[in-house]
Each structure stands twice: as structure tokens, then as C-alpha cells.
Amino acid sequence: MVPLSHYLFLSAVLFMTGAVGVLTRRNAIIVFMSIELMLNSVNLTLVAFSSFLGNVTGQMLVFFVMTVAAAEAAVGLAIIIAIYRRKQTVNLDEINLLKW
């Protein structure tokens, strides 16, 4: 059986990959994808804990997280489309009316 630490390590690596993606990439869509990667790595952590603790709360939370992530995609993509219609770009370096 694969020990719990392996799952935790994998999800930590995925989480860090997502976090580095958010901080280094300049395309709003890629940044958004990186955030989704972070959320899903958390889901992996939750499912692993849930399975090893023999407790169903973690899996229940995963369903909520998936729903929240879907709503987040709807809101986020709508905002990105609204910007793209006005400026024809989703590059974060060119979206700089306000002092960052």
C-alpha cells in the first residue's frame, strides 16, 4: 500500500507548481489554470487524508471544492472575456491602468 506521505508529497509538489505558475506566468488564462491546479492538489490531499483517517468529511469537502471551482471558472472567465473585448489582450503586463 502506498503510504500517506507519498500522497501528501505529490500534492505539495503540485501545489507549489501551481503557485510558481501564478507568480511567473503573465497570461491571465495560464495564471487561472495554475490556480485550478492548486485547488486540485488540495483535493488530492483531502481525499488522501479522508481515506487514511477512514473519515468521510474530507471527501464531502472535495465535492464542495469542485463546485466552488466550477463557479470560479464561470466568474473568472467572464471577467477575462470582458477585458479581452476591450483590450484585445489578456497579458497581465499590458493591463496596467492602475499602479500594480
Binding site: 491571465a28 495564471v31 490556480i35 473568472g76 471577467i79 477575462i80 470582458a82 477585458i83 496596467n96
Partner: peptide, 19 residues
């Protein structure tokens, strides 16, 4: 444009923090 930009910045950093 200003409001769009404000919404995008809030959204990206807010979702990042939520993670």
C-alpha cells in the same frame, strides 16, 4: 477599463489566496 482591471486583479489574487 479601470473597473475591468480592478475585477481581474481582485479575482486572480483572491483565487490564489483561496487556494
Amino acid at each position: 477599463d479601470k473597473q475591468n482591471e480592478s475585477a481581474l486583479k481582485y479575482f486572480l489574487l483572491g483565487a490564489f489566496a483561496s487556494a
